[in-house]
Design a protein around this nucleic acid. Structure first.
Lengths: 201, 201
DNA sequence: GTCTATAGGCAGATAGAC
DNA sequence: GTCTATCTGCCTATAGAC
């Protein structure tokens, strides 16, 4: 039976595990998985490192949980985008909008960050990163395919190829935006990328 | 007077400082600046950590030297590209070719990697990373501007905007290529990016 | 220039009390 | 679930001999 420690209402403080994930997520997105320690999280939450190890026995376990939560949330956000927009071009803009939201908090995409550190990650995390990338490209590819069929998008080559290009370009624009401290540069690149898919009217 | 320890000819072994930079460069490009230690370099070169500190007193100093050598070499490679190709579209392909060469060694762009780790870097390294990015974008922007004037390239918006987009897209495609173990995906993205600038003939 | 030796600190992780 | 205390190992960096 779930939620046995729940009392009366669900409006209580977030569970400790959730707060740990929240802090760790931000640390990864800003400093990288190799750029923070349990001590950093502990200080911020004002608990001890030992308490962290109770919730996430190892850093690898914490890392895997981070990627999985991030992937799930991102997938949910994509469902929202589909619900909100019907037209393929708008759905693509919705996709780019998710990245802009992340970047505005001066964060890198969690999985883009981990893609950079890929070679140093435990293999359970590596496969989770690859899964995330594939899911995103596959969503983009589906939108592109349908948009082309319906005539709202135009491009040469396969939807998969275009999806790869767009996904990589968004991650790269994000990567460069932070050192340059230039969010509007990201928006300009995203715009250019997507308007390039407009059909000749 | 320089080269006092040189004997007879310049065909001797590379200087130790150079070999250190070579190993460290590869380690950064594969594992990131926070993903390797002096111990890794020492083991590979079969010297002690103390000897490394003689050549590069601190890791920050080593990091700065790495970025500066990389930037210088990249600038030289761009001069070669200019010498080899006159037409703007070919120069852009030459630029992308430099990235392909790096990726084929399963490495990330050194400065792209450091862009991910930006927030954790000492400030002397941060400014060197930003300088590198600006130099690359500025080279691209010049090629784009001239290509447009001469009619060999066509695009909307400013050369700077397009340069940002292309540079980011190449870095991002590189970032994704390694986890997916897919160099040809990078080549396809680079191709698509550049053919999009063809003038209507 | 390279070595041995070591300092001083922080990393991830565990044992056991409460 | 959270604590104190501690372990072991690695990190960057330095002192001083050769």
């Amino acid at each position: 039976m779930k939620g046995e420690q729940m009392t009366k209402l669900d409006v209580q403080e977030p569970r400790t595990a959730t707060r740990i994930l929240d802090v760790a997520e931000r640390l990864v997105q800003v400093r990288g998985f190799n750029g923070f320690s349990y001590a950093n999280i502990a200080a911020e939450l004002q608990i001890t490192k030992a308490a962290l190890h109770y919730h996430f026995a190892s850093k690898a376990e914490l890392g895997k949980a981070l990627i999985e939560r991030y992937s799930t949330r991102f997938a949910e956000a994509l469902v929202d985008v589909e619900a909100q927009y019907t037209e393929a071009p708008l759905r693509l803009r919705g996709f780019a909008g998710l990245y802009i939201d992340v970047l505005k908090e001066r964060r890198m995409c969690l999985c883009g960050m981990m893609a950079a550190e890929y070679e140093t990650l435990p293999s359970s995390m590596q496969s989770a990163v690859v899964r995330y990338i594939r899911e995103n490209k596959s969503w983009l590819s589906d939108v592109l395919k349908r948009g082309k069929e319906q005539g709202s998008l135009a491009f040469e080559g396969s939807p998969d190829e275009v999806a790869s290009m767009i996904f990589g370009a968004l991650e790269g624009a994000m990567l460069m935006a932070r050192p340059l401290d230039d969010v509007s540069g990201f928006e300009s690149s995203a715009n250019r990328l997507l308007t390039g898919l407009r059909p000749v009217s």
